[in-house]
Amino acid sequence: MSIAIGDQLPDVNIFEYVAEGDETEGIKVWRLPDLVYKKKVLIVGLIGVFTPVCTNSHIPGYVEAYDHFHRAGIDEIWCISVNDPFVMAAFARDTGCGDKIRMLSDGSGELADHMGMTLDLSDRGMGVRSDRFAMIADNGLVVDLLREDPGCFCYTDASTMLERLEGVLQQN
């Protein structure tokens, strides 16, 4: 069963490569409910980092729109993918995310599996991945969710989510 609007995010661990200044702190393990506690978070799910759409279109749109999301009440923007924390950190550097987008690893696909959002790309050499999605979670409750059809990048872009965010805020 897939996660839906009105559902709580699952209680799973996600991973993040954290570096402070010149001293690398390493991989941090976070419980998802702890990370979303008392926050309004925009979560962008990618099929895989360094793929053409994700690198050239999906994430750059969110980097450019960061200030708009922040002014609209989003506390943090997260990018989650079935990649390891080191790859997520490299992707953040290469896409110029800085402190605008938090790169989180669902390395084993546990989150994608719990949300019913797995995509099997084994025939393309990529294994089981996450579907491409965008969601808004408020204190862990899913208040908006868009999920792309396989192979599409049609409506999980930053401009669509900004429009939807305004609608969600008007309803609450």
Rank of each mutant, 00 (worst) to 15 (best):
I3V: 15
A4W: 06
D7K: 12
V12S: 12
I14M: 15
F15G: 03
F15T: 07
F15S: 03
V18L: 08
A19F: 04
A19I: 14
D22N: 05
D22L: 09
T24W: 03
E25G: 01
G26V: 05
G26W: 04
I27F: 03
K28E: 05
K28Q: 13
R31V: 05
L32A: 05
P33Q: 07
D34C: 13
D34A: 15
L35N: 04
V36E: 04
V36F: 05
V36G: 04
V36R: 01
Y37N: 14
K38A: 10
K38L: 13
K39D: 08
K40V: 06
L42V: 05
I43W: 02
G45A: 03
I47D: 01
I47W: 01
G48H: 00
G48E: 00
G48P: 00
V53C: 00
V53G: 01
S57A: 00
S57F: 00
I59L: 04
G61E: 01
G61D: 00
G61Y: 02
A65P: 03
A65I: 02
D67P: 07
D67A: 14
F69E: 11
F69P: 08
A72K: 06
G73F: 07
G73M: 09
G73N: 04
I74K: 11
D75C: 11
E76G: 09
I77R: 09
C79D: 04
C79N: 06
I80N: 04
S81C: 01
V82T: 06
N83E: 08
N83R: 07
P85I: 10
F86P: 10
F86D: 13
F86S: 11
A89H: 08
A90G: 13
R93E: 09
D94V: 11
T95G: 09
D99A: 10
D99P: 08
M103Y: 09
L104G: 11
L104H: 12
S105R: 11
D106C: 09
D106H: 08
G107L: 11
G107R: 12
S108M: 10
E110H: 10
E110K: 14
A112Q: 01
D113W: 00
G116I: 06
D120Y: 02
S122K: 08
S122L: 05
S122R: 06
D123W: 01
R124T: 12
M126E: 03
M126L: 13
G127I: 02
G127N: 07
R129H: 02
S130Y: 05
D131T: 11
D131C: 14
R132V: 00
F133I: 05
A134D: 06
M135F: 09
A137M: 12
A137W: 06
N139H: 14
N139A: 11
G140A: 10
G140L: 10
L141R: 12
V143F: 02
L146P: 06
L146K: 09
R147P: 00
R147T: 12
D149Y: 11
P150D: 08
C154L: 15
Y155I: 11
T156P: 01
T156A: 13
D157M: 07
L162S: 07
L162H: 04
L162I: 12
L162F: 07
E163Y: 11
E163K: 15
R164K: 09
E166Q: 14
E166V: 06
L169Y: 02
L169C: 10
N172P: 03
